[in-house]
Computed example of a mutant assay.
Amino acid sequence: MKSSSATMPIGDLAAMFGIAPHVLRHWEEMGLLAPERTSTGRRVYGPAEATRIVLIQISKEGGLSLEQTRQLLADAADRDARRELLRRHSEELRQRIAAAQAALDVVEHAAQCEAEDALACPQLRAKVTGRLPRGLSG
């Protein structure tokens, strides 16, 4: 990576992202980042690394492991393998989003329910009963 005036030391960049410098060093060890080095060996980061940090954070927020993220960010990544990993993971995310939305619906209904006992509310019970395993009833 060619040196530029838009570089910053590890501590400054880590602080901008609200993470500890050791996290960036770990990501470098894993092959996720490749910062420049000064003549004294200090790491300096430029815009390309900042972009990769955002991609790493998005991947983590989406539930990808650091190893999966490394595979996705590798320059020589197999395009078909990358697409398959992302396709599978996008389906997992859709399922997690659907489950979170269903939970939010129950929580919001319970918060606004006029029933004295939320568990006695027919609408809430219908939402909960629909998730009981077969053979059980609420």
Score class of each variant (00 low, 15 high):
E84D: 13
A15P: 15
G41R: 07
A15W: 14
Q95H: 13
S90W: 04
L119S: 12
S137N: 02
H22Q: 13
A126G: 12
E49M: 00
V106W: 02
G41C: 03
E49F: 00
R94F: 09
H26K: 15
I53H: 04
A118F: 06
P21T: 12
L85A: 00
I56K: 02
P122D: 09
K2L: 12
T69R: 06
R125D: 06
K2T: 12
T51R: 14
H22E: 14
C121N: 03
W27G: 08
T51Y: 04
L86S: 02
D80S: 10
D105I: 09
R70C: 09
A81Y: 06
H109D: 00
F17W: 11
T51D: 08
E92N: 03
A81P: 03
G130Q: 03
S90N: 05
D75T: 11
L64M: 04
G135R: 06
R96K: 02
M1H: 14
Q71L: 14
A118C: 12
T129E: 08
S65M: 05
M1A: 15
M8E: 07
S65F: 08
E116T: 13
V23H: 08
A126Y: 05
C121A: 07
A77L: 04
V107Q: 06
A110I: 07
L124G: 02
R82L: 04
S5T: 15
E28I: 08
A111I: 11
R37I: 12
T51E: 08
P21E: 10
Q112L: 15
R42K: 14
E49T: 00
S137R: 04
E67P: 01
L66Q: 08
A98S: 01
R37Y: 15
